[in-house]
């Protein structure tokens, strides 16, 4: 059986997933090497079986992100933080030094252009509870490898993935190690 890969986007913008697709024709090679488990590519809602590699895009900004991250940690041999949001919280973490109440008020109540006659901040129980601040993944669970970048270069993703699948220690080349 081929090793399985699972991917997900937590508090991310899917830019890192676009960068996975940016490996271009190497994706055919990847399809030969692995099977995809839970991923936006196939829309599986949960991990079905043990995975060799889990790739996490985005940090944790709400309870659901934390649940998904735990599911990945429990079911993946190697967990990889992909991109600056997973590693540092990224753009969503800009709110980390602003009180949460102020953020919600600005988003839903007191900002030019907002139409909200009921004056309610969305609080349906179907909506995951927002966390007080946005956490990088490694502050929630143990992360084994990191690929920085916004988004990470496709070469960095490819190099780390193939190294993990071949049992080598991943090394990101200088030209592919970028924080922007």
């Amino acid at each position: 059986m081929k090793p399985r890969i699972a991917t997900c986007s937590l508090a991310g913008c899917f830019g890192c997933h676009m960068s996975i697709l940016d490996i271009d024709e190497r994706i055919l090679k990847l399809a030969e090497l692995v099977d995809f488990d839970r991923s936006p590519i196939n829309d599986f809602k949960h991990i079905t079986t043990r995975c060799a590699v889990g790739i996490i895009e985005g940090g944790c900004c709400n309870e659901e992100n934390v649940h998904v991250l735990h599911e990945f940690r429990e079911n993946c041999d190697n967990l990889v933080s992909l991109g600056d949001c997973a590693i540092s919280g990224g753009i969503p973490a800009l709110r980390n030094n602003i009180p949460l109440e102020e953020c919600l008020e600005t988003a839903y109540l007191n900002n030019p252009g907002i139409y909200n006659p009921s004056g309610i901040v969305p609080n349906d129980e179907e909506i995951p509870m927002i966390l007080k601040k946005v956490y990088p993944c490694h502050e929630v669970v143990k992360i084994d490898y990191y690929i920085p970048g916004c988004p990470p270069p496709a070469d960095a993703i490819w190099d780390v993935l193939t190294a993990l699948l071949e049992g080598r220690a991943p090394v990101i080349a200088y030209d592919s190690l970028k924080y922007d």
């Binding site: 933080s81 540092s88 030094n97 601040k133 502050e139 990191y146 690929i147 190690l177």
Partner: peptide
Amino acid sequence: YRFGITAPQFPYLNPN
């Protein structure tokens, strides 16, 4: 970059 740092080993302080 020179040191090959992929992620910091300490928690973020997010100062104001």
